[in-house]
Simulated assay, not measured.
Amino acid sequence: MFKLYPSLLLFLFHCTTIGFHQTSVRESMSFGEEATVRVCVITEPGIDPEEIHSLFEAWNEELSLYRIKTQSIPLGIMERPGFYGSDIIEYLRNKQMPEFCDRLLYLKGRTWGDIVYEVFTLGLFVGVGVKLEIQGAVETYTNTKGYIKAKYISTLQLLSTSPKSTLIHEGYHLLGCGHQLFMKECYERIRDVKLLLTDPNRDPNFFPNINANGRKILKRPI
Rank of each mutant, 00 (worst) to 15 (best):
V138D: 01
V119Q: 08
K151C: 01
L195V: 04
S154W: 13
C177Q: 04
R80V: 02
T198K: 15
R103H: 06
G85I: 04
G214H: 09
R93S: 11
E57V: 11
R67G: 05
L218H: 06
F125G: 06
Q71I: 09
R191Y: 09
D48W: 00
T121C: 10
S162F: 09
E44Q: 11
L218M: 08
S154L: 10
Y84G: 00
K131D: 07
V25C: 05
D102I: 02
C177D: 03
V41E: 02
I73R: 04
T36H: 04
K69C: 08
R93T: 13
A150C: 03
A150M: 06
F182K: 02
R110E: 13
L218S: 07
F83R: 10
V41Y: 01
N211Y: 04
L9M: 14
Y152T: 05
F2M: 11
I88C: 01
E139N: 02
S28V: 05
G32N: 07
S162E: 08
S165A: 12
I190H: 03
S7A: 12
P81R: 02
E118Y: 10
V128L: 06
T43S: 13
W59M: 14
N201C: 12
K216R: 15
L196A: 05
A58P: 00
E170N: 09
V25A: 15
V119F: 07
T111H: 04
Q135A: 11
T140L: 10
L12N: 11
I217P: 02
T198S: 14
L156C: 08
N94G: 14
K219D: 04
D199H: 14
T111Y: 07
Y106D: 01
R80G: 01
V126K: 15
H14P: 00
S160N: 09
K151Q: 14
T70D: 08
N143E: 13
I168C: 03
S165W: 11
